[in-house]
Design a binder for these strands. Structure first.
Lengths: 221, 221
DNA sequence: TCCTGTGAATGTGTTCACAGCA
DNA sequence: TGCTGTGAACACATTCACAGGA
């Protein structure tokens, strides 16, 4: 019943971590517009967050703004990437080359992104050997070897629900400890593995809550 | 005069709303296993949340557990669906029939789900007229008319970034006020429209943060 | 006894207000 | 002056501890 949560200081709160990529994109936009310096107020406009929130977050990363001026975009972006670990190679394995897997691979392909898909696996024999983005689809039998060889620690599970648990276990056994799971099942894995779930059906269900506003009965627009 | 008036709060906190679909799925699993009654402790096991958390949430919905016993699965699930608005038709429009859109449509197809995709749109003329799940792909020109006709208030944006803002505006103009946006851009829309973003690239970037720490095996630097 | 429901205590994140520096 | 950085106040969410009904 009790979930012990040992928070080693030095670690950012999860909510802040989720915001860092948002800053990264805003910075990239601003840089593309030719800016060199940005204030927390400008970032607020571009992200929809408050300027105080942004200053708090950025101060947590070490605080490298200049009072009275703002943040140097290039420097700030580099710092955020460093904190997130995006300044190194972050190899990702994608399991499942169906429509969702393909969409993810395309999403990732080409962009100057760092978590980069370096291996794709699928159970369907007829897909194996085909290309998907920058990768050739491999069989599940090759998963353990490839994942270990490429030092992959992060993986995306885009397989049907029935296969997800098995795939997750194979990934964990091969050394992956951060999983992004799109299958609509709760994965049971040993402690060090962190699972982040994205469940599109649940997402829609939750959103339904907000589709009932103050619409009086005779809703004639 | 005292009446056992079980009143649902006017507005549930967003965090709680996000958990309701989780309960719904756990309940559905438990029901499939032949259970009739469930305790908050059992739900905790199935969801990974704490039992206190669960009791708080369920009490917020009106509290219909039986002390010393637990919750009646069927009744509880029905209540959650009602709170989320899933006891009525919740028609959804899907814009973009690429890989992501197709994955979403498949995800939704067949399951006894309530936010149901009732219309699909795409710009590509060669796709128009094709089937996707239960729907025939329509042109963007038909969007406004169809959305209004079917009283669609919720929409999924699964188009390239460059088109997303335009699509969002068309949807909003046609009466959609809850959008689920998969395009990697921040949408600017008038106040009443609620946008929920799912950005897969950002998701990966944030997760990269958790791929550091003590290497499981012989790491490098 | 069981397990729910809930006030109280705690913890966590956000906002405020302003000090401090360019 | 302008904008960052930050302690303090606040709001919210979670956990605890136990009261209360089956």
């Amino acid at each position: 019943m009790k979930r012990p949560r040992r928070q080693v200081l030095e670690r950012l709160p999860d909510v802040a971590v989720k915001r860092l990529p948002v800053y990264l994109r805003a910075l990239s936009d601003l840089e593309a517009q030719g800016n060199d310096i940005v204030s927390s107020a400008q970032l607020a406009q571009h992200t929809g967050l408050t300027s105080e929130q942004i200053r708090k977050d950025l101060a947590m990363l070490g605080g490298f703004g200049t009072r009275g001026v703002g943040y140097r975009i290039g420097h700030l972006a580099a710092s955020i990437r460093e904190v997130l670990g995006l300044d190194r190679e972050v190899p990702v394995a994608l399991v499942g080359a169906g429509h969702l897997g393909t969409a993810l691979a395309r999403y990732n392909h080409g962009r100057r992104q760092q978590p980069r898909i370096v291996a794709v696996f699928d159970t369907a024999p007829h897909k194996q050997g085909e290309r998907l983005g920058d990768n050739v689809i491999q069989s599940m039998a090759e998963l353990a070897h490839t994942v270990r060889l490429l030092h992959v620690r992060m993986a995306i599970i885009a397989v049907p629900a029935a296969q997800a648990q098995g795939v997750a276990e194979q990934l964990a056994a091969a050394g992956c400890d951060v999983l992004l799971n799109f299958a609509p099942v709760r994965l049971e894995l040993p402690a060090p593995v962190r699972v982040h779930n994205v469940d599109l059906a649940m997402e829609l269900e939750a959103l339904a809550y907000y589709v009932r506003a103050e619409e009086p009965a005779g809703g004639a627009p």
